[in-house]
């Protein structure tokens, strides 16, 4: 599982940095490196681009895992170069950007769009398989999530737009319910497709501000 990111266009990054001339760049050695969006090569490339646009890069680093607590120490170790900068440009997912924001008083800006938390299907091809809804349905859908893989998050089987195993939204997207149907058929459990799944409790999802979770002795009882 990695966080999939994509670089924002320079035309968006530059104005977001504001009038300040000096920038410090932070990359991430984990997900953003795998996605080729915020590893060392991309950080150095960004440095050149910003300098070509008249910015001065006061320094850069690639934090092993930008979303980790160790980011605080990394920021402290590089305090001098960071202090000279007007802004920090973070080339990591939004987790990393917000971790830097938490431990630095500087203005922090993202260089990447965080697309989704996903997996690499084939080299260079990433797919979203879980939307962290907080109320897992995989037990009834034989391990394939319709909430994230169906364009309408349907819970009671494929809509009328499922044709030849593909979603109406894109010929490149398999219909999640065709996948579920095929697997249930192979397992001899097609009767599960006949059960009506009642309305869902979305309160565990992203409808109520930041979700929190506290680990206690009783948590997993």
């Amino acid at each position: 599982m990695i966080t999939i990111t994509k670089q924002k266009p320079l035309e968006e990054i530059l104005p977001s940095l504001g009038k300040g001339k000096k920038v410090y760049i932070i990359g991430c050695g984990t997900c953003a490196t795998i996605c080729h969006t915020g590893g060392k090569a991309e950080v150095l490339e960004m440095k050149e681009k910003l300098e070509a646009e008249g910015k001065k890069v006061t320094g850069w680093m690639v934090i092993p895992t930008a979303c980790d607590e160790l980011t605080r120490e990394a920021l402290a170790e590089n305090a001098e170069a960071i202090e000279q900068a007007d802004a920090i440009l973070v080339m990591s997912c939004a987790f990393g950007v917000q971790t830097v924001t938490m431990y630095s008083d500087k203005a922090v800006y993202p260089a990447l769009n965080t697309l989704f938390v996903g997996k690499e299907e084939t080299p260079g091809h990433f797919i979203e398989v879980c939307m962290q809804c907080g109320n897992c349905v995989l037990a009834t859908t034989v391990g394939i999530c319709p909430l994230v893989r169906c364009a309408k998050s349907l819970l009671n089987g494929p809509c009328g737009g499922s044709v030849d195993g593909k979603c109406e939204v894109s010929p490149d997207t398999p219909c999640a319910w065709q996948l579920i149907y095929d697997r249930l058929k192979a397992l001899g459990q097609l009767d599960k497709m006949e059960e009506i799944v009642p309305v869902r409790d979305w309160s565990t999802s992203t409808s109520g501000g930041p979700r929190r979770f506290v680990l206690t002795d009783e948590t997993n009882d």
Binding site: S153, L155, G157, I196, P198, V199, R200, W202
Partner: peptide, 10 residues
């Protein structure tokens, strides 16, 4: 897509 068409019928 808070609810689907079958849940709407129900």
């Amino acid at each position: 897509f808070d609810i689907d068409s079958i849940q709407l019928i129900q």
